[in-house]
């Protein structure tokens, strides 16, 4: 464990807490893409299959349970909670994310560390996470004005993977046989997708203005 990875995990946890706060406090999920939430639930379920077979640390197990639990709770809330689902931007959240799932699964069958079921699913979860934010970014551009909590949620979600890239660089230089090129390349793509969001987020912070994404 290094400071970049711990900070990355805490940033990821913070993004989830901000999203839960938004949904719980405002009883609204406007501006939040249900498709991105569903993709993230799938990412965690596919990646944390070894939750009960490979014990790595208490921290690792607890965080996995938190990520799986919170992502499923958010999907459930946006689908079933009568107050919350009324505020869901159904007509804006139309990105066909099933193509992302199919594409990532095919890629995982072709490019993986070992052609074994757990490894293919792990690679699938890595690729899927890299593109899972696309429906959310598309929704933000379509809905124009972004409320603060939603903006902070997306910012934290993007920042955590950027911190993981620093973690991979650190581990590459400090651990002899470290190679996570699949996670690294996917992480770079994932972070690059946030580039223009980070730019407008920084502008809104600098000018102390409302976050506006050009539609």
């Amino acid at each position: 464990m290094n400071v970049f990875r711990l900070t990355g995990d805490m940033t990821h946890l913070a993004s989830i807490l901000v999203l839960l706060l938004k949904i719980y406090a405002t009883k609204s999920c406007s501006g939040i893409s249900l498709k991105t939430q569903e993709l993230y639930a799938l990412v965690f379920l596919a990646r944390y299959l070894n939750l009960f077979t490979d014990f790595i640390s208490v921290y690792n197990t607890v965080m996995k349970l938190v990520f799986i639990g919170s992502s499923l709770a958010i999907v459930w809330c946006m689908r079933m909670h009568k107050m919350v689902k009324r505020s869901y931007d159904q007509e804006l959240d139309t990105f066909r994310h099933y193509f992302l799932i199919a594409g990532c699964f095919l890629l995982a069958l072709l490019v993986n560390e070992k052609f074994m079921f757990p490894e293919v699913l792990w690679a699938f979860s890595i690729y899927l996470e890299a593109v899972s934010t696309i429906p959310q970014l598309v929704l933000l551009q379509r809905s124009g004005n972004v409320d603060n909590l939603t903006g902070q949620y997306v910012f934290l979600l993007g920042a955590y993977r950027a911190l993981y890239i620093l973690n991979w660089i650190y581990r590459y230089f400090t651990e002899p046989h470290f190679s996570r090129w699949i996670a690294c390349v996917a992480g770079l793509v994932q972070t690059a997708l946030y580039a223009d969001f980070f730019y407008y987020y920084f502008l809104s912070w600098k000018n102390n203005a409302k976050l506006q994404l050009p539609s």
Binding site: R5, D9, H12, R47, N50, D54, I56, N60, M63, K64, F67, E113, K114, E119, W122, Y164, N167, R180, A183
Partner: peptide, 10 residues
């Protein structure tokens, strides 16, 4: 013995 690639990261 090939140490199985442990995915120790989240």
């Amino acid at each position: 013995l090939l140490e199985r690639e442990h995915h120790d990261e989240l």
